[in-house]
Amino acid sequence: MKIVILVFGFATALIFTLLGEDVKFFQIMSDAGLVKYSESESIENRAALPAEGKITGKVFVSKSGGTAARSAKGLYGKSSSRLTKSAGIDQRAIVFIVKAPGKYPLPQSRPVMRQKNIAIVPHVLPVLLGTTVDFPNEDEIYHNIFSLSDTKTFDLGRYSKGKSKSVTFNTLGTVKVFCDIHSQMGGVILVLQNPYFTTVGIDGSYSISGVPPGNYEVAAWQENGGSKIQKITVRSGEQVDLDFSF
């Protein structure tokens, strides 16, 4: 009887885990009519579309604080001075077109998410669906990058300075990335449907150029603020000004 109850407990935990992370972000993508690409879909077949318009604006964030780092684990007590001095977290927002018709070639060079100074750099990395991201370790110590996100679950294991591992992201959504050794390390990868995305500047300004004419939903995503979506129309040769506030 006890074993049955225990198995039931594990099963309950498993079910709720499967219902876990990234639900809200993916809901936005689903609401916008997006469907996950299957692993087998040929990314190379995506043709580039004509690029004619431009979207510019500013993202205003009223509150800072909070990171993707995991929770503290008590005091730890030991000589943790180095662990309290990780680099500051860059929490700039990402602006992207939620859905743009067509299929797109992958970037020629792979995006990189580094493990540097006991931090994940960049903290937020937007990538095109199907992109392979490199995870080099540039610290003298071991790191162990992993994610339990439904969008992509992986664990790269421990590896030392100068070594790198890579992961390909074939499903739309957010991927929260952590280090299994250093709980203060965290990052987020946004896997997006099209290449019309950008990271806002330090002053909050952004610009997305080469956008084909059409009606779009444009989203701004900020780690603590979630997503804000606005509808716009891009016309050939014109610029659309679009601001977001969190």
């Binding site: 993707a68 780092a69 603590n224």
Partner: peptide
């Protein structure tokens, strides 16, 4: 057992929130 079953789903539900946890829980 009751506590395990109660806490397990709570943690999963927290994970759905877009506002991620701070390094030291609620921080100011």
């Amino acid at each position: 057992l009751l506590l395990i079953l109660t806490l397990a789903p709570c943690e999963s539900l927290w994970a759905q929130e877009e506002s991620l946890p701070d390094e030291f829980g609620e921080m100011t």
